[in-house]
Nucleic acid binder design. Structure first.
Length: 352
DNA sequence: AATCCGTGGTC
DNA sequence: TGACCAAGGAT
């Protein structure tokens, strides 16, 4: 164990945060926490971890749960494929491994939703297997420690940092070491304004010596954020409104949502009424346009411009051929919906 | 390899 | 305020 590794372990022992998934060696709970924490801040994910552990204490509890229920519990956390993949993986753990979490890296890595990072995390934290994690924290710590400007989102960079992480790994205590590196990145070696003055390995840090801390890690720019224009149809009666389930190959897959007419702009009421959706809708003569309200919903890679067009209706036949059904605001506790729709519905029904 | 997939916080 | 990013993975 080299000097850097030793100092990291010593620092971690004193400065580690008290996080709920650090109390356990249960691979199911560690897996659950790692899936929740993918691209998610600890503060945002922690309430969800508590909810899931309470509702699904074991992998069998998760496995027998309906996917709609799992998605509802996941609502608001984003990246919903994590919930769908996790549920699917729970099925595999129960059927293929008889409910016992697999203990070898390759089996863990083959589970849906488990990539290189998560497999290494579960293997090291739950089973003390010598696999080094490489997450955003590790990229930052290693790029600065060794003053490496290879882009972390290039294949060369991924290989290079993976190899460095393996070399630095404390193979006697891989779980402890992995968490120490990530913890340093999270609370000391931060993206901006890192606290190098109290860093336990500052004397080894090449970037600090060279004055390149603020330039590392290097990342290839993403392409500019594109706009999408969603014309929502809020078809509402006294107590009911119209809902559908979103299909594959788009955002919010499997969640429930209102019917949408997506075009290259937000539509005015008269433009909207020219759409084929309304010509196919029996009973459209009972539709009464009651106004609209606009929302800008910003995702990482999209700006969603949403206009909720509000229609009163008395009766609408032939809705089901669009997959549309009627529901109530109260009944929404059993349907997972995007944050955007959640905001709209809450504002609409609280104002009303 | 490049793009897609959410939500919320930071500076 | 807009760019960046957070215990990434799938295609």
């Amino acid at each position: 164990m080299n000097s850097v590794t030793h100092k990291l372990a010593k620092w971690y022992k004193v400065h580690q945060r008290n996080l709920p998934w650090r109390d356990t060696k249960d691979p199911y709970k560690i897996w659950l926490s790692e899936i929740i924490l993918q691209q998610t801040r600890v503060e945002q994910g922690t309430p969800y971890y508590y909810k899931f552990v309470e509702q699904y204490p074991t992998v069998r509890d998760l496995e027998v749960a309906p996917i709609d229920e799992v998605l509802k519990l996941w609502q608001g956390l984003g990246y919903y494929s994590r919930a769908r993949n996790m549920h699917s993986a729970a099925l595999e753990v129960v059927k293929k491994y008889n409910g016992k979490f697999p203990k070898d890296y390759n089996s863990i890595r083959s589970l849906k939703g488990v990539g290189d990072y998560t497999a290494a995390a579960i293997a090291s934290l739950a089973f003390d297997l010598p696999h080094a994690v490489v997450d955003g924290n590790v990229y930052r710590v290693l790029s600065r420690l060794y003053n490496i400007d290879t882009p972390i989102n290039s294949s060369k960079g991924k290989n290079q940092f993976a190899q460095l992480a393996e070399e630095l790994l404390d193979k006697k205590k891989p779980g402890n070491h992995n968490q120490a590196v990530m913890e340093l990145g999270a609370i000391c070696c931060k993206p901006s304004n890192p606290t190098c003055n109290i860093c336990p390995i500052a004397e080894h840090c090449l970037a600090l010596a060279k004055g390149t801390i603020a330039n590392l890690p290097v990342k290839i720019k993403n392409k500019p954020v594109q706009n999408r224009y969603l014309n929502y149809l809020f078809l509402v009666n006294e107590e009911t409104f119209c809902l559908l389930q979103r299909g594959p190959d788009d955002i919010w897959q499997g969640l429930y949502d209102l019917p949408i007419v997506e075009r290259d702009k937000l539509l005015e009421p008269d433009e909207l009424m020219e759409e084929s959706f309304f010509k196919q809708l029996k009973g459209r003569q009972t539709l009464l346009y009651k106004g609209n309200s606009d929302y800008l919903h910003k995702l990482t890679h999209r700006n969603l411009h949403a206009r909720f067009h509000i229609f009163f209706y008395k009766s609408l036949a032939s809705l089901n051929k669009f997959g549309i059904f009627e529901t109530t605001f109260k009944n929404m506790q059993s349907h997972a919906i995007p944050r955007l729709l959640d905001k709209f519905l809450n504002e609409y029904y609280s104002i009303k």
